[in-house]
Design a protein around this nucleic acid. Structure first.
Length: 338
DNA sequence: TTCCGACAGTGGGGTCGCAAT
DNA sequence: ATTGCGACCCCACTATCGGAA
């Protein structure tokens, strides 16, 4: 559509202000919550596991910017080409660039492309990407961030022809909790809940909420690292689980503790200190700040997923499991070698 | 007085790109 | 030619402080 702003009422159009020139482009960010709800004043979108990108179309030119304002054009040239080919009115779009692995958005699959500085290498990578657009900041010189989200989505739908690799992000208007269960059952990263009548507010906002699907399991503590800076007690715990070949290293966890917990854990681990690594596979590099421990303590760890290398992604400490025997700790969930 | 939001600081896995070796 | 490291991507979480409620 050549003029999507015609979708607005006269009074809505009257209230639009021109885009402030030279103002930095900043995306609106969601706040993590563990309180999941259904509410008719909110809508729900799939949370994508990719790279957040703003696209700015100005006089036929297209810029693609990462969350920190770095250009992502050479990493995703096909997205830039697709936008340029449509020659939309000047606009700023907000969305996520994603890659798929067996039907699920996969950050690991996207990762080799994220930092590519050569558009040729990006095109030859063999990793197809899609740009899921879910919001719009400005159209044809008019700042639309003050409009309610539903109105912005109506404008966005009419702004482009939705053809791969450009995709309009779908949303649901109700049943947030049921949708969240569906999301986790299907291996999604989670949902984003958005207040349907809220304006677009750059920066962290509580009008957008993250409902994240979480995994958790017990892990054996096989060592620790020295604290840095103002940190007390320890830096991170070295984690593992048992296989037929012994204790397998699964990465570190360095967040989730308060100061008291850090000091208590450090005291307890010093008594379990050992000069040899308890891990039987490739061990973390035993740098100057690394200590081994006899593998007796069991910790509950929450995380988002296993990485390709068998490490925990986004791990955080939840507490000790004194009721569990270290020997019984194995990797849960789907077979890692499949 | 209590609560909330913003910010700094500490920690995680993984990849690219470049300078040092 | 190889290696190490900083800079980004994705983050979670705690501690602190000032202003709002």
């Amino acid at each position: 559509m050549s003029d999507p702003l015609r979708l607005l009422s006269a009074s809505e159009r009257d209230r639009l202000r021109p885009v402030t020139p030279g103002r930095g482009l900043e995306p609106m960010l969601a706040t993590l919550t563990h309180d999941r709800f259904s509410d008719e004043h909110w809508l729900y979108e799939r949370k994508f596991d990719g790279e957040r990108c703003l696209a700015r179309c100005v006089e036929g030119r297209v810029e693609l910017l990462s969350r920190n304002g770095r250009s992502a054009a050479s990493a995703y040239p096909e997205v830039v080409d697709a936008l340029r080919a449509q020659a939309p009115p000047d606009c700023v779009l907000d969305g996520e660039v994603v890659a798929f692995d067996r039907g699920r958005t996969s950050f690991a699959r996207l990762q080799p492309r994220i930092h590519l500085a050569s558009a040729d290498r990006a095109r030859r990578s063999g990793v197809p990407v899609y740009y899921y657009v879910f919001d719009v900041q400005s159209i044809d010189g008019a700042d639309v961030t003050g409009l309610p989200l539903r109105r912005r989505k109506a404008l966005l739908r009419a702004l482009l022809t939705w053809r791969d690799p450009l995709r309009l992000t779908a949303h649901r208007n109700s049943a947030g909790e049921a949708y969240f269960r569906y999301a986790c059952e299907h291996g999604w990263e989670g949902l984003i809940a958005k207040r349907a009548d809220a304006p677009y507010a750059p920066g962290r906002s509580s009008d957008w909420l993250k409902f994240k699907c979480e995994q958790g399991q017990e892990m054996v503590i096989g060592g620790w690292t020295e604290p840095q800076g103002t940190r007390s007690g320890l830096g991170a715990l070295l984690l593992g689980y048992y296989t037929d070949q012994g204790l397998r290293y699964a990465g570190k966890v360095g967040t989730g503790f308060d100061t008291g917990t850090l000091q208590a854990l450090a005291r307890e681990l010093r008594d379990l200190s050992s000069s040899t690594s308890p891990f039987t596979d490739i061990t973390p590099h035993p740098g100057p700040g690394t200590h081994w421990a006899r593998p007796e303590l069991v910790a509950e760890i929450a995380f988002t997923e296993w990485t390709r290398d068998g490490r925990l992604r986004h791990p955080r400490y939840k507490g000790l499991r004194r009721d569990k025997s270290a020997r019984d700790v194995v990797r849960e969930g789907p077979d890692p070698d499949r």
